[in-house]
Design a protein around this nucleic acid. Structure first.
Lengths: 205, 205
DNA sequence: TGTACATCAGTGAACGCGCGTTCACTGATGTAC
DNA sequence: TGTACATCAGTGAACGCGCGTTCACTGATGTAC
């Protein structure tokens, strides 16, 4: 191992992402990250002002992972020719991606929403996936499209992201951290389907 | 201060509730609770097996506080004579109570959902308010009544608590801890209203 | 082309913090006889 | 009614843990002349 590491900042972030993945935001710890990078613990201070700055950078990446998962699900959709049906399918794909991400990567999910109070929330260009859009941006896009093709009214479109986001966020939180965490997979599917169905009905009406 | 305290268990719980209220579940710390009760730190071990047992007991109380708030809101409703309208009003009251509680008592809200992994989830008779019902129980009651008077169909009633619970839990979490925590009050009301409206529409349809 | 020197990126020891938990103990209480 | 003694509810000192952070430092790099 040479004295100059070469890419320590990146390696610290990789290590910290692994900590977050396994054990959530509280496990994003300077000493553990440097340990895992094979470097003395205060080498980290060359690249991050303090522990919260490292955590903040990790939050960004976690949110980006969520965005990527949503984009993946969107990319897998086959157009049916029916613009309204496709619009609903896209919205469902985005919502399901959110819930699946939370369950598949609970540590990342929790961390994505753990920006320290001492730091600014995500600014433009932060927490974005490959397409450059945030999770919320991707959801907005779906709703815009659905509105454009007449799947939902303009009135319903207004602030609709709150309804959709809160519903999928709520079911994700309750399944991952909350009282539903012990729920068997079959029941989870029932709960998730009900949430998506009611939200869809509520927007359609 | 006499050697025998008399009611130390209760006083520790009161102190721990105050810690939770101010700073959330992580602040529920044995030494702080005993300090605040004016007692040596390991006196706590006469009343709680360990730190997690204390936290667990505090979680119960926080959930009970939430239930009480929901009951308060229900009690404030004036019957209109229209059973269906009253049913919807009760559902809205319960949902709003949940969201208001989260914003008014963020520490308690977070703690209510922080039962340690090492402990069993709430059993019967735990996390209940004055009426002996849990928050989820109160919600179920509302949905049952609404269904009984024909406000929602039997099919919609089925598993409807997931949809309602997840929606209010999601908006609460995002407003209290999440990216919406910086939202000004006026915008919060808009978001909350939208969530409740869409969920209501979705159940009604 | 060679070299002095500023700059950058690491090291290693140390400090202070607060926590949960354990140990051996002492003071107060209540009950059997 | 008095007293020995078990039991209960506290005390106080100590341990070990892992953390964030600071300090003075050393090794490597690159650039001006």
């Amino acid at each position: 191992m040479p004295y100059h590491h070469g890419n320590l900042r990146e390696e610290l972030l990789t290590a910290a992402m692994e900590l977050a993945r396994t054990s959530g935001p509280d496990a994003v710890v300077l000493r553990a990250a440097t340990r895992s990078a094979g470097v003395s613990h205060n080498a980290a201070y060359r690249h991050f002002a303090d522990r919260d700055s490292l955590l903040r950078a990790v939050c960004d990446r976690c949110m980006a992972q969520l965005a990527n998962r949503m984009e993946d699900n969107l990319g897998r959709i086959e157009e049916s020719g029916d613009a309204v049906a496709d619009g609903w399918a896209r919205l469902a794909a985005v919502g399901l991606a959110y819930i699946e991400f939370a369950q598949a990567e609970p540590g990342w999910f929790r961390t994505a929403y753990s920006v320290p109070d001492t730091h600014e929330p995500f600014g433009p260009g932060e927490g974005v996936g490959r397409s450059g859009r945030t999770p919320l941006g991707l959801l907005s896009d779906c709703l815009d499209q659905l509105c454009a093709v007449g799947g939902i009214t303009v009135e319903k479109r207004h602030d609709a992201e709150y309804a959709a986001w809160c519903a999928v966020h709520g079911v994700s939180s309750l399944l991952v951290d909350g009282p539903l965490r012990a729920m068997p997979p079959a029941d989870r599917e029932v709960a998730v389907a009900k949430v998506l169905q009611v939200i869809g009905d509520g927007l359609a009406r």
